[in-house]
Design a protein around this nucleic acid. Structure first.
Lengths: 341, 341
DNA sequence: CTGTTAGCGCTTTCAC
DNA sequence: GTGAAAGCGCTAACAG
């Protein structure tokens, strides 16, 4: 913990004024080559690094963009974060990540923290906090939301067409001859979970397939909830040949429940997810799912923020997800088995 | 982007001095109840939030602890980050996360960034940067490393006993009657990968099992590398009944390769991992692995940092991982199948 | 208990 | 081109 060296020290040591050092640091103005060399030598020798807090205070920008995520260890948001990191790379901005844990209060606290740190912009990933709170901060800094449509800020939202994604899944299943398809939804408090459920219902109807309420279950996007929902479904005597999950994590849980009961995938039951997490390529069998390009969404969000910061007014267009057919779906068995094992 | 309201505004509006407002904000000294009330009312009415940069500049602490991770989307480090977040919760410190991507140069840049942001402390997760660079920053701020032993800073390293972990795996397999066991290692540039490989070799010897070089493969901790290594192993005609992977992600890749070849787990081949990622509970079949308590390691690191910041001198003790036997391991088949399918 | 006065480290007019 | 000086928003002695 030696004394930190400041720009002042550098200036003195090099025999120039602090302003000159600052100018060299930021390339704000021309400086004679010899002076510049001298200063740079001193900077190097003293191992000087400018204090970002001080810079922030002086020029009113913190050069950080706040990211409100929900769960930093979630495979889904993790990939988005990586995309944001990449999108910000090369710019002088850096992400400051805080988790809200799908809890309105914690999300509000996270926003407060970010505002106190005077982030120059904000990226919001999902969440359950009311639109009002987001509109509130959006009045102070540019804001981009991923995966949720914030009222009044729609052109700042990176969205994907969840209904279209699920529709593709249902059509795929229908083409394979499935007629009895079960569904595990996410929480009704989450925007995209609702869209996926509604999309499922609409698509079933569109394909002329009956919607049976006992085959509709609610989960919460976690593996465990998918597992439990599937167990319940199985205890019905398996009157279904396909199981559509509202996200990959629940499909993973479902896979385990099926394995435990000796139900083969896809021979007995076809299984699908949504998101295309990286690891879904490695499930047994590899999972048929809807690709979300989470990475790119994050990168896109970051780039949009950068453009907003540069004074542009970019507009988003909803992203169209695409179906990835792998090996967890297959032709419907001739007669849906009606008993468990 | 209305004008930001400052402490000064609050002071004027409430008819007190800036110091009084500051004191109320930080609880630094007593203030008469009526003044306090008045000020708090103004703070609320003006929606004032103190500028952290300014606070940092004024009192020499940024209240942020830098975290050098490698890959923010890695399931492994993601869980560690969540642990760090939790460990810092309640304190006034917040994590500032930067990724080094297992690339010495990028790690150095990340460290530079963190130092420029004047983090009050540092947590390092893995990485390949030389010890010297870490010792260098450790001279400026308290540093805690997770998963790597930094020379000269060993009592600041949260380590796990990799050798013991792998030994438990090998013993477990030996007890099940396996004699031909294959191994997929990580990169030799990574500290823990080396320990796990060496631990495997030692344990095999200890159990009286022959070490066959053609059954030792190198991966890089990714799913893809595990898959490829397994394919190579399989092309040998499968002269092994158990496959030990140096981490869960490679085991996941191995699982897929085995599935593709119709090799059953655990009936034909027993499969093991290391780390106990959350999702390993959901592989088909659930993976036998070594539990690393990644979460707790992160939390422990955070708490240690907090104690260092408080002036204490905590010492770490190596964490003993424990074997989690699930369903991917079973008795060795009577005669190791020698042909592929 | 509370106001006044210096800074914290850097940027930025404004003159020279 | 370059230095002097003021100020970013807040905290911390130091007097009262």
């Amino acid at each position: 913990m030696s004394v930190t060296v400041t720009l002042m020290h550098v200036a003195r040591e090099a025999g120039v004024s602090p302003s000159t050092v600052s100018r060299i640091l930021n390339g704000t103005a021309n400086v004679t080559p010899d002076k510049r060399e001298r200063v740079e030598a001193v900077i190097h020798r003293l191992n000087f690094t400018p204090n970002v807090q001080a810079q922030a205070l002086a020029n009113g920008r913190s050069f950080s963009v706040g990211v409100l995520t929900q769960n930093i260890s979630s495979p889904f948001y993790g990939e988005t974060l990586a995309g944001i990191e990449r999108g910000l790379e090369g710019s002088s901005y850096h992400p400051l990540v805080v988790s809200g844990h799908w809890h309105a209060e914690q999300e509000q606290q996270a926003l407060d923290l970010l505002m106190r740190r005077r982030v120059d912009a904000l990226i919001v990933l999902g969440g359950v906090i009311e639109d009002a709170a987001l509109q509130n901060v959006a009045a102070r800094v540019p804001l981009v939301a991923v995966g949720r449509d914030v009222g009044g800020l729609s052109e700042r939202c990176v969205l994907i067409d969840n209904r279209a994604g699920i529709r593709d899944v249902v059509r795929h299943l229908a083409e394979l001859g499935h007629r009895d398809v079960a569904f595990i939804a996410g929480l009704e408090s989450q925007h995209d979970a609702v869209e996926r459920r509604e999309g499922f219902e609409a698509a079933m109807q569109e394909c002329g397939l009956a919607l049976r309420s006992e085959l509709m279950r609610a989960g919460d996007y976690t593996e465990g909830s998918g597992e439990r929902a599937t167990e319940e479904l199985l205890s019905l005597g398996r009157p279904f040949t396909a199981l559509v999950c509202a996200n990959d994590q629940m499909a993973l849980g479902a896979r385990l429940a099926l394995y435990r009961r000796g139900v083969r995938v896809p021979q007995d039951v076809s299984l699908t997810g949504f998101d295309d997490l990286f690891s879904s390529r490695y499930t047994t069998p590899p999972l048929t799912t809807v690709h979300q390009a989470v990475n790119e969404l994050g990168e896109l969000a970051a780039q949009t923020v950068l453009r907003l910061l540069a004074g542009e007014q970019p507009r988003m267009i909803p992203y169209i997800p695409r179906l990835i057919v792998r090996e967890s779906t297959g032709p419907a068995p001739l007669s849906p088995a009606t008993g468990g094992h």
